[in-house]
Design a protein around this nucleic acid. Structure first.
Length: 968
DNA sequence: ATTGTGTGGTAG
DNA sequence: GATCGCTACCACACAAT
């Protein structure tokens, strides 16, 4: 079978990688071992058949594509993945046929299962077992069973029995061999040998087959019978077991002098717990099981799905009283682990996996008094406090206590927003503020939790999220703080905020804190009070702007104890705020690969995981980002942390799937391709981290929003969490179901090509596109025509779904509904333009009337998207803030707003006016605080005239419009 | 000018 | 035995168009 063009391209590309890496490997830092691995990688090129006797190669071939195939086969090639993807376009039967007649020896690889998901046997995806041993045991059992099955099939098909040459041997194959591992495996098994997939079952292994060993392995294997593959081949040829010594790879006297009796090699480390490296199929699971950070993220999702509720009173939450409780366990992990191990909590305790270069996840306050901090390495912490007690993680307990925590508090508040396993925001909307009641509530909660969980919580209470956060900081540990300032008490607020450190403010981490310090006072460390006093001059204000516009605004608001829009929407519309927008897996620990195939296998596993997660939440993705960490050129090959990533260069690449999908057989090849583009000029062994992100998520069906992870269904219907705000059911939306269904490719990418035009063009187009296509991805190519057509159609709609996605998420729920109706109308209007002119009846009049306010949307300077409009207004205000609005501009705006009133565009009007008010307020408060400051007011920055004019415009012209709407 | 990409930061 | 350095999201600079 000739190598087809696809393969050729792939081949060229893969060899170019290899070339570049071998160039690299010339320099001193690269070991010989790496070089030899690279040479081995050229085994990607199909090899000529070597077998002659015993079993013929053709006999082996007929078994290819058979289900008999190990999921840890190292023989997966990229060509395999690609060609499979091409073939999946064909009927599955055809594909299977071809597979059987496949005439080169890129044999069995697990991608075969991509032909048809149904082919995936359950054994391929190991179930979860209680422990690793159990898993191993089961797996080995399965593999032996498979071996028996294979023998039976061969004997049946070729009607002969095979001489039991390798009886009583147990053979393991290390690394690349020629013939391939799989072929050797079959030969060994057929001729009576046992085959070990893992060296972890070393106690039984009698021989190790290898053609090449890394220096490390040479040492490791020096007591074994390490034999070259020719031993197998020639033994079969000779029809008897030849002396292995003649084929020994390692010339080791002690072994050669050994008796030729086949005796199992018992090694010291046979009892050792098997080491899971990143090539092991269960590495991901085992890593995640022990990763605190992974648990944090998954728990957050779980808890939000299960316990989040939002019962604000009315649409405009910011105008009614709210009491925000920020509740947080004190050094949660340390406390719980301490309880579990009956440690005295007054002694320094920390939670960590290891004893040396291992992160401290949490330490108690006794430990903190020594200067120990979370995230510090144990070795360093022990320098600070030699008596520090290191406790293991107790993930189950953490999770369980967290569950109790939310269950106990769920009914006590109007709104519950879990932020983590150990902390959440809880909100009440009382009619009046009852200080005594609040502090009693705090005490009750603390008592309750302390009796039920034996853990202490701290509580910060205030009326904005920022202030609550700060209150919590000052309440810790084991206390509560209530700070509910009146609107008039600005000074008190400023003073309170000023008493904190830079990093105490949300969104200011150590990097930003350093930056701010550098900006204002490189020599000493400044506090928030320093920052406050610094901000009163415009030049200082501009300094802050170097952090970026958004962040500096945030900080200015925070310094006054006010929430920014981000915080507000988090509180007011949590379900909207915490909608799922992306899904990713990051692994930056334990990543050590030798060959590109191992990486591909790994990517396959990661993508499989992502795909199943996507499916479980009933979503599909159209964009991915792959991010790689490779160790920095001059940093040591092994970092101080065991299997850590060390210092790395990080690069990333985004790409798009041909359509929305959640199938790993579409995603995987694409992502691998991006990997190849990204990971160039570096040996595979320097890869230290991989992250794959899927974004542009879309639900399969907007009305049927699936569960996020394993959401429990014990909630009442009323409180049943939703990821999206409910959509109006009677309104045809822009993202109509039918259109979505077309966009979404969930099962197989087979297309009904009943479009006549396209069909005719296809043949012509194909020839051209093969010549000059950029993408080597068959899936992409396959979709190209389809997608183009789709886009053309969509372009006719003036409004794409993106408007909904981006613009709506910021708005309160009520407004979202209304604006969605607007878009529904817009869409109807557009569709009328397109097709309804010929067939005007396409929109029944009744339907139109049922949509609340059937008026066409009102553009502002040709803009329709509310976010775009406010953005334009923002720049307009910013540019004219000091000299005031120009009359004609102001007129334009007012006219626009009046039109909104006239056509009853309530939500839009409200949105715009509120926004304007907020903006002008923002500048006004800035200039006011500047002019209040005695030091600066004399020099510059009196309240500029422009501000007054803006205010005038706002108060006299704009705000009344909002009121008129209320009356109407 | 708008849109997309790669990078960086933060939180818990 | 070590060790388990995740992941969602936003913002921004800059390039591409």
């Amino acid at each position: 079978m000739p190598i087809n063009e696809n393969d050729l391209e792939l081949f060229l590309e893969s060899t170019s990688i290899l070339n570049s890496s071998s160039q690299n490997s010339i320099d001193k830092t690269t070991s010989n071992a790496e070089l030899s691995n690279i040479e081995h990688s050229t085994l990607l090129i199909p090899q000529p058949p070597l077998l002659k006797t015993g079993t013929t190669l053709s006999e082996l071939k007929t078994q290819e594509g058979n289900d008999y195939c190990n999921h840890d086969s190292i023989n997966e090639t990229e060509e395999g993945g690609k060609t499979d993807s091409i073939k999946q376009q064909e009927k599955n039967d055809d594909a299977f046929e071809k597979m059987h007649s496949n005439n080169n020896n890129r044999s069995c690889n697990k991608n075969n299962s991509y032909f048809n998901p149904m082919l995936q046997s359950p054994t391929r995806m190991p179930q979860r077992y209680n422990n690793y041993d159990e898993y191993m045991e089961n797996k080995i059992f399965q593999q032996n069973k498979n071996d028996q099955k294979l023998i039976a099939e061969y004997e049946k098909q070729f009607n002969k029995t095979y001489p039991q040459i390798f009886k009583n041997t147990n053979i393991y194959i290390n690394g690349y061999t020629n013939p391939t591992r799989l072929q050797l495996h079959k030969l060994i098994v057929l001729h009576g040998g046992k085959f070990s997939h893992y060296l972890t079952s070393k106690r039984n292994v009698t021989h190790i087959i290898a053609t090449n060993l890394t220096s490390k392995k040479k040492i490791e294997f020096r007591k074994y019978r390490v034999v070259q593959p020719e031993w197998i081949m020639q033994s079969i040829e000779a029809n008897k077991l030849l002396k292995w010594q003649d084929y020994a790879l390692l010339l080791n006297d002690t072994n050669i002098n050994n008796t030729t009796d086949i005796k199992t090699l018992v090694t010291k480390d046979s009892t050792k717990k098997p080491h899971l490296d990143c090539n092991h199929p269960d590495f991901l699971a085992s890593f995640f099981k022990n990763s605190r950070l992974h648990h944090l993220t998954t728990w957050k999702l779980e808890l939000q799905n299960k316990h989040m509720k939002s019962n604000p009173v009315g649409a405009h939450h910011n105008r009614i009283k709210k009491i925000i409780y920020y509740i947080d366990f004190d050094c949660f992990f340390a406390t719980v682990s301490g309880l579990k191990h009956n440690e005295n909590s007054s002694l320094p305790i920390a939670v960590s996996h290891g004893q040396g270069n291992s992160d401290i996840a949490s330490c108690n306050y006794a430990a903190r008094s020594f200067g120990i901090k979370n995230g510090m390495w144990v070795s360093r912490a022990k320098q600070l406090c030699s008596t520090l007690k290191i406790l293991p993680y107790e993930f189950d307990s953490y999770r369980k206590i967290s569950e109790t925590f939310y269950e106990l508090l769920y009914d006590k508040f109007d709104t519950v927003i879990p932020l983590s396993v150990d902390e959440g925001v809880f909100i009440d909307y009382p009619e009046d503020i009852d200080y005594k009641g609040i502090s009693e509530k705090c005490m009750d909660i603390r008592n309750l939790l302390s009796t039920k969980t034996k853990c202490t919580v701290s509580i910060g209470v205030s009326n904005t999220l920022v202030l609550s956060t700060l209150c919590l900081k000052s309440a810790k540990p084991n206390g509560f703080k209530i700070f509910l300032p009146h609107n008039t008490e600005k000074e008190a607020v400023a003073k309170f905020v000023g008493s904190f450190q830079l990093t105490d403010l949300p969104n200011i981490g150590h990097k930003t804190a350093d930056k701010i310090n550098e900006l204002y006072s490189p020599s000493s460390i400044i506090t928030l009070a320093d920052l406050q006093s610094n901000l009163s001059s415009l030049s200082s204000f501009n300094k802050l702007n170097k952090l970026g516009g958004k962040l500096s605004r945030k900080i200015i608001l925070y310094l006054k104890g006010e929430d920014d829009i981000d915080n507000i929407s988090k509180i007011n519309t949590p379900f909207n705020y915490f909608r799922k927008k992306s899904l990713s897996v990051d692994i930056n620990w334990g990543i050590r690969f030798q060959t590109i195939e191992q990486v591909y296998n790994f990517i396959d596993r990661v993508v499989a995981r992502l795909a199943s997660q996507l499916k479980s939440i009933n979503m599909a993705s159209s964009q991915y980002t792959i991010k790689l960490a490779r160790c920095k050129a001059n940093s040591p090959i092994e970092p101080p942390k065991y299997l850590g990533m060390g210092l790395c260069d990080i690069t990333s690449k985004t790409g798009r799937f041909p359509a929305h999908t959640n199938e790993n057989y579409i995603m995987s090849p694409e992502i691998k391709q991006s990997f190849r583009k990204l990971y160039i000029q570096a040996p595979i062994s320097s890869l230290r981290g991989i992250s794959i992100t899927l974004s542009n998520l879309k639900t399969n069906n907007d009305r049927d929003i699936g569960s996020m992870l394993d959401r429990k269904t014990n909630n009442t219907l009323d409180n049943f969490p939703r990821l999206h705000p409910p959509l109006p059911h009677d309104v045809p939306l822009t993202m109509s179901n039918t259109e979505n269904a077309d966009q979404m490719v969930t099962v197989t990418p087979l297309l009904p090509s009943n479009d006549n035009n396209n069909n005719n063009n296809n043949n012509n187009n194909n020839r051209r596109s093969i010549e000059k296509r950029k993408s080597r991805s068959p899936a992409r190519e396959f979709f190209n025509n389809y997608h183009k057509k789709k886009n053309q159609e969509r372009a006719k709609h003036h409004f794409s779904t993106e408007i909904d996605e981006n613009a709506l998420k910021e708005l309160p729920l009520e407004m979202q509904k209304e604006i969605q109706r607007e878009y529904a109308v817009i869409n109807l209007v557009n569709s009328t333009k397109r097709s309804a002119l010929e067939a005007p009846k396409i929109i029944p009049k009744k339907k139109l009337e049922s949509i609340c306010c059937f008026n066409p949307p009102i553009p502002f300077q040709k803009l329709l998207n509310p976010k775009e409009i406010t953005a334009r207004l923002d720049t307009w205000i910013l540019q004219n803030i000091e000299r005031g609005p120009r009359t004609d501009d102001a007129l334009l705006l007012v006219q626009y707003l009046r039109r909104l009133v006239k056509f009853n565009k309530k939500s839009m009007l409200l949105y715009i006016v509120d926004h304007l008010e907020e903006q002008i307020d923002y500048y006004r408060s800035y200039y006011r605080s500047a002019s209040d400051d005695p030091q600066t007011s004399s020099n510059h920055h009196q309240m500029p005239d422009g501000i007054l004019q803006w205010e005038k415009l706002l108060v006299l012209k704009i705000l009344p419009l909002r009121e008129s709407k209320n009356r109407a």
